[in-house]
Amino acid sequence: MTQHASPPRDNTDKVPTVGQPPVWRGVFARADVRTLSLLGVLAVLILIGGITKPDEFLDTRNLQLVLTQASVIGVVTVGMTFVITSGGIDLSVGAIVALSSVWATTVATQEYGFAGILFTAVIVGVGCGLVNGLLIAYGGMVPFIATLAMLASARGLALQLTDGKTQIVTITSVLDLGERDAYVLGIPPLVMVFAVVTIIGWLILNRTTFGRRTVAVGGNAEAARLAGIDVRRQRLYLYLLSGLCCGIAAFLLIILAGSGQNTNGNLYELDAIAAAIIGGTLLSGGRGTITGSVLGVLIFTTITNIFALNNLQSDVQQIAKGAIIVAAVLVQRRTASTT
């Protein structure tokens, strides 16, 4: 049907390009209002950072730091975005990051070197995701409850494994990835991993059948089921995906901190949910945006950085974060009702 015999109908195929507006209008028309407003917020923040601490904030090292900090929570948020888009929630991401980072840095694991740490971090993440997914998809548990239980157990297990002690990483090939020598064109390897995860996540959500099924399940699970989609299997895969992202994030955290700790990833679940929501993913499911989520993460990380540079304490940061979540959701409700 790409070619049609009757000429008049060809016009309807090209409705959006009739009249050929300038290129910049095309770019703006394609990026939706929400993404633009998030970019606007980020720009304002950078402006504030540049004005209040011109030397420190815009310093290359500081920008590298901001992006590196954003990478760990960013990878988690990509997985969370999928889960929320499907109408679910994963409260256990922070605890899974903790358990993965701890399990991957035990003395026994470290004997297997770089590969042992990476493999363990990923497998533990996927394993926790598998348990979540089975409980939710086939055990009929509410995602909130199942992942809340996982949050408690995974943190408990992480504490048991470490006995509350910090496990120092001794594998230099792992630690080297966090060093400046490993930066490529000034970009830290962690940030590159984040970028790759983001791009793959975007492609999966927007260009694959897996992404379509995710959106369909979140938009209307009953309609998806009656359309012939295996809703339960899709749910299982989604929690596996979230677990996988947690495993990757745990590995990044190990590189960043040079250690594994049972307190790692504390409250990541809230940060990831908040970033996804202000990014424009619907908490009720059916609509998700990886671009929005990543911008949400960058906004939060930038705020934290600016506040730290200005010697504002974390209590003020928390209040600001809360205010931003409320403002973002209110603005979205406005725009949603007018469009």
Partner: peptide, 9 residues
């Protein structure tokens, strides 16, 4: 609406 359509799509 409840059983067939993906209303956001």
């Amino acid at each position: 609406k409840a059983q067939a359509l993906l209303m956001l799509e």
